[in-house]
Design a protein around this nucleic acid. Structure first.
Lengths: 140, 140
DNA sequence: ATTAATGCAAAGACTTTGCACCGGT
DNA sequence: ACCGGTGCAAAGTCTTTGCATTAAT
């Protein structure tokens, strides 16, 4: 069901294949880090100068609604987009510089029935927070 | 070290005890749900009409910086503030209406050394997501 | 041909900030 | 008296939206 490129997945959802969506998908998939909408826009502009921020936002929102990208919200600052919805993973975030790394934790965590309040739980997100090596250095 | 009122904790940090901070602390502690800055402001205005949003934001940020309140960031929408930093707990969030409930999960999760990337991890946040009973109903 | 997608610019939601005045300590 | 805190209004950051135009199917 997955494993295909973002672009292929777009088509599968019945969305039209436009140049804009192509460069947005490429920007996301080519990144080794999770980009903000603005970073996606910057990269996209390099390949398609007429593209607009609105289209980037619209497309990112659509991809998210379709479950094809994950949104990462750091406490402050813009949202970031994670194209990897195929392999389950969680995030490790530096509280100072905001760097995000993908991680696969060990162990298991769950909610006992008396803690579910009747919710239908569909996802468990685990975020590890701390300081990355660079930010932990006392140099300030 | 904790267990005292927010107000008492404020004083302990050397912050001045003002009427504004008093009503903000009361708003936070009196809430059974986690409030947004604006909700805190609304409640505060009821008791102290001259209070400004800027002061609410400033104070909330200070409390957070001091570790006396927790910030909860839902994907969309304003941040919420959780005055309970005393008893460890996690959050259960409805993806449709945004309701937040405090929960105490079972189990354990951790990062193996090869997944830590040299980070000094100081916190693990677990967020359960799903639909609350009201939003799960097919009525729409 | 049809209708979704785009770009632009404007509006919106949320938060921060500069500065003169006020009020805890 | 000192200096942190406050209120106001303006600015800032990030995101969404209305609408006329363009282009994928």
């Amino acid at each position: 069901m997955h494993g295909a490129s973002l672009l292929a997945r777009l088509r599968r959802h019945g969305l039209r294949l436009t140049a804009q969506r192509r460069v947005i998908a490429e920007a996301l998939e080519g990144a080794h880090v999770h980009l903000t909408a603005d970073e996606v826009f910057e990269r996209a502009v390099g390949r398609l100068p007429e593209i607009s921020r609105a289209t980037v936002y619209n497309t990112l929102n659509q991809l998210h609604a379709l479950g094809e990208v994950r949104e990462i919200t750091i406490d402050a600052g813009p949202r970031r987009y994670d194209p990897n919805v195929e392999r389950p993973h969680q995030h490790l975030i530096c509280d100072r510089c905001g760097t995000v790394r993908d991680v696969v934790p060990l162990g298991d965590i769950s909610l006992p029935a008396d803690q579910r309040y009747g919710f239908a739980i569909s996802d468990i997100q685990v975020t590890f927070r701390g300081l990355c090596p660079a930010c932990a250095r006392p140099s300030r």
